[in-house]
Amino acid sequence: MMDHARDLASVCEATDRLLTAVAALDNADVTQPSRLPGWTRGHVLAHLARNADALVNVFEGRPMYVSGEARDADIERDAPRPLKTQLTDVRDSANRFQDTASLSQDWSRTVELRNGVLDTAAWLPFRRWIEVELHHVDLGTGHDLEDLSEEFTQREINFLAHRFSKHPDVPALTIKQDDGRLLLTGAVEGVTAEQLDSDYRPPLPDLTVSGRQADLLGWLAGRRDGSALHVEGGALPSLPPL
């Protein structure tokens, strides 16, 4: 069961941390490369602002983005802005998201995200939390995956493992976490999505990936190459882009 109110509070706290870190930069810093290939810090900040507005669209029943091309054009347009403008936009758009998400609504309803992805409204605050936390790391201001909370890290690992479950381009594999918990993902034969969400324990795939939580998250989220992970039963697979 998703606790959207708690997730909204977590989004607010994560946004405050990000804004505090960005406020210590200057205009030149915003133009420097981020950790995301081809994006400056300005691109990351512009994306964060436009993503908040896009989720407001979802809450209000509109398409998340007019189109993929429009989304990319908006980010390119806003990326070169000076630091003060970037900070104001990220803060104001975050407030618009919080205000919209705080309204009384049917949290069980189905909503449509980018590329036709369907989800329930209750997941939107967590999705926004993901954006803020991971892109804070992408800014390269000294905040890293190891600095993320244990709760967020575990939930995001679970989320990504579920996202890749039954994916035809990801081989069946077991994720062995550093506390001994196991997660199945990839093209696990004969296992339904409902079973993956339950306590069902099918035979484990031969391919096992294990390591620290931060390294597992980094690999699943496309932020690390997986070289710090331990792999048994085959080679570490390349994961499709998120």
Rank of each mutant, 00 (worst) to 15 (best):
residue 200 Y to W: 12
residue 210 S to E: 08
residue 54 A to Y: 02
residue 206 D to Q: 12
residue 104 S to Y: 06
residue 97 F to D: 00
residue 24 A to L: 14
residue 34 S to E: 06
residue 168 P to L: 03
residue 236 L to F: 11
residue 215 D to M: 07
residue 170 V to W: 11
residue 75 I to R: 00
residue 40 T to Y: 07
residue 41 R to C: 02
residue 56 V to C: 13
residue 220 L to Y: 00
residue 173 L to M: 15
residue 138 D to Q: 10
residue 169 D to G: 07
residue 46 A to D: 02
residue 131 E to D: 13
residue 158 N to Q: 10
residue 115 N to A: 12
residue 8 L to Y: 09
residue 238 S to L: 11
residue 206 D to R: 11
residue 18 L to P: 09
residue 205 P to M: 04
residue 37 P to R: 12
residue 59 F to Y: 15
residue 93 S to R: 12
residue 241 P to W: 10
residue 200 Y to R: 01
residue 70 A to N: 04
residue 136 H to C: 13
residue 147 D to V: 01
residue 76 E to D: 09
residue 80 P to S: 07
residue 38 G to F: 06
residue 107 W to K: 08
residue 151 E to H: 13
residue 228 A to P: 05
residue 4 H to G: 06
residue 217 L to C: 10
residue 5 A to W: 05
residue 201 R to N: 11
residue 234 G to A: 03
residue 88 T to R: 14
residue 76 E to S: 08
residue 125 P to N: 10
residue 84 K to T: 12
residue 96 R to V: 02
residue 149 S to I: 11
residue 218 G to Y: 01
residue 14 A to P: 05
residue 166 K to Y: 06
residue 240 P to Q: 07
residue 2 M to K: 08
residue 50 R to D: 12
residue 231 V to T: 06
residue 219 W to Y: 15
residue 23 A to W: 03
residue 212 R to T: 00
residue 85 T to L: 13
residue 107 W to D: 08
residue 122 A to V: 13
residue 177 Q to P: 02
residue 58 V to C: 04
residue 40 T to R: 14
residue 104 S to F: 02
residue 138 D to I: 03
